[in-house]
Design a protein around this nucleic acid. Structure first.
Lengths: 341, 341
DNA sequence: GAAAGTGCCGAAAAGGCTTTCTGCGAACCG
DNA sequence: CGGTTCGCAGAAAGCCTTTTCGGCACTTTC
């Protein structure tokens, strides 16, 4: 009554073993387990049972070698610690997991040499495709057109327009932020953002200015560039309040900046949101929910970005390549810092 | 003068092609490229050149099939988005990368079924070993002893003492936090921490109390358990200040809690660090550096944890398994919230 | 000058699986 | 009842590489 083969999981159960136990040839065993036609139901059952008894699991290496398709993809990131890679990676893993594809993770740490090396390693392991995740929205060098597998660039687009890149629509994000503020009745809006060398800060500002113009408004003061930190948010807000005490909303380039801004507002005796509305970008939950009141923010939908990238990669692997830059839209998550209550 | 074989990277350059171009047999080509003896220098050169010309890269699948060793490991995490997995993962990737090992990443999202499935998938891809990263310090179920490859548990130990687990010494972390506070002259120390169901909060508190006893001190009030949030930090600190205005230091269970505590202190007119010292755990840079003043915190050395886990896995793969729980020590990172700047 | 040794190269097997193709008995058709 | 299908199983080739072993042409040794 007890399991006769307890050591089954020990090592190396091969199709041969299954076939022998079932009393058939390896060819038949293979066909039986893979649902091929050409095998009698009774025989199939015997093989399946033998496989279970031995807890057989086919060697994917051998299978891949033959099929010239491994069911693996490479995920090449450049800032594993970063805010962006992880959700994207999760989305991708999510999309892949459904189809039982495994992902090889590599972090090039921003080093081109390392990156080359990793690509080489991945190719020698015969991945079916590659997703390259950047750490900034600025375009990055292409891996080249001569690669034997499809590549999708996520977050940071490739410089080569022939490549396919999936990015976030930062201009649109800026627009929708302003739209939201205006819809809550704000008209004297200022903008404090981060590092001016980042494409993200420029594009968000561009979108915000465009939306203001559409509404017949203009920004209070200039766009304040600085760094992506709380302390910059505090400093900039203090300055701004001195120069433009009439403002009724501050759009911040990131949630961290927004946290600093809210700190400064409180110290200047301004209340949020009644007196001044505040909102950020990124919807980084640990910052938005810790704020008082909770921070309205533009969610960049990174997980979806990862999923879309994975889907596009699948399509390309299946012979339907695309190229160009595909920008995904964002969504405003409304919380207490822009609407009372 | 130009490269004669531009399409080299296209598809499927095999050792056969190299051998043919070099005018030797595949056996000789293999030996030549792998630095085996038994091949004349001149012949070797010819092969190497042929390989370069075709930009040949050996099929690792075939190689692994033969060697019964893939040079890949599986990294099974349970909260990819979490604070812990990523640095551990980076440390592991770091340690592996040096020896050109590739890592398969899987996120089971805390689901046991999913986990089983991923383990199965990884085994069928013939990983050489597994690292299992937990999301909490509490012990987790073992994957079992019957696996055909070594397993190392990181952060969350396995329930089975026969397994090898690498964890953080949270008790020691609690001790060293108190030691630091005492060394700066604090004697009336309170402790606000997070979710009481987490082993981490219990162990850190335990270490803190032990260290206080060693110094002949006792805690101001009781340990305040709550949640790992800023708002809990604020609320608990306010209560605490009402009941024990004499306190001169608050040890916080996490950096987030500490941020909330500092907020509350400021609102109650207490200055940090002169009046009250504050410190946290985790040394999460985005929180510690944004605080005013910057927050002293206990760094859990997660990257090192990842590296050690990877090293232990290597050792086990090479036939030197260990078992039991290995606790790594932590370090206090001193900033302005405990010592005047 | 024959026997033994050396240096290099290639044939072949192995690793685990899938697939094609062949073969064989049974069922069908006329 | 002879011949054709049909259903099912097995033999064998192939995927790409490494490694063992045998063989060939030399050189060395008495």
């Amino acid at each position: 009554m007890n399991n006769a083969v307890p050591s089954s999981a020990s090592r190396k159960v091969t199709l041969n073993d299954v076939a022998r136990l079932a009393g058939v040839s390896v060819a038949t065993a293979s066909k039986a387990l893979n649902g091929r036609k050409q095998v009698r139901a009774e025989t199939r059952a015997r093989v399946v049972e033998a496989a279970e008894q031995l807890s057989f699991s086919p060697n994917e290496l051998a299978r891949s070698l033959l099929a010239d398709r491994t069911g693996t993809v490479g995920l090449l990131t450049n800032d594993l610690e970063g805010r962006f890679s992880i959700p994207i990676l999760m989305g991708a893993e999510d999309a892949f997991g459904a189809d039982s594809v495994a992902v090889f993770l590599c972090d090039a740490r921003g080093d081109a040499i390392r990156e080359k090396h990793h690509v080489q390693a991945l190719l020698s392991r015969r991945v079916d495709g590659l997703i390259v995740v950047g750490s900034r929205t600025d375009p990055r060098p292409s891996l080249g057109r001569e690669l034997p597998v499809p590549v999708v660039y996520a977050y940071a687009p490739s410089e080569d327009p022939e490549d396919l890149s999936i990015v976030v629509d930062n201009v649109g994000a800026g627009r929708s932020a302003v739209d939201h503020l205006v819809s809550t009745g704000r008209t004297r809006i200022a903008h404090i953002t981060g590092d001016p060398t980042y494409g993200a800060s420029q594009e968000r500002a561009e979108g915000a200015l465009a939306a203001l113009a559409d509404h017949g408004l203009s920004l209070v003061g200039e766009v304040r560039f600085g760094s992506w930190t709380e302390s910059w948010g505090r400093a900039a807000a203090s300055m701004l309040l001195g120069q433009h005490p009439e403002l009724d909303a501050i759009l911040c380039g990131s949630d961290q900046v927004a946290r600093g801004v809210m700190d400064a507002l409180r110290e200047h005796g301004r209340t949020v949101p009644d007196d001044v509305a505040v909102m950020g970008f990124d919807n980084w939950e640990i910052f938005t929910s810790g704020a008082r009141p909770a921070l309205t923010s533009v969610d960049m939908n990174f997980e979806r970005l990862g999923r879309v990238a994975a889907q596009r990669l699948f399509a390309a692997i299946d012979g339907e390549p695309r190229s160009g830059v595909e920008a995904l839209d964002t969504r405003v998550v409304i919380r207490g810092s822009t609407v009372p209550g």
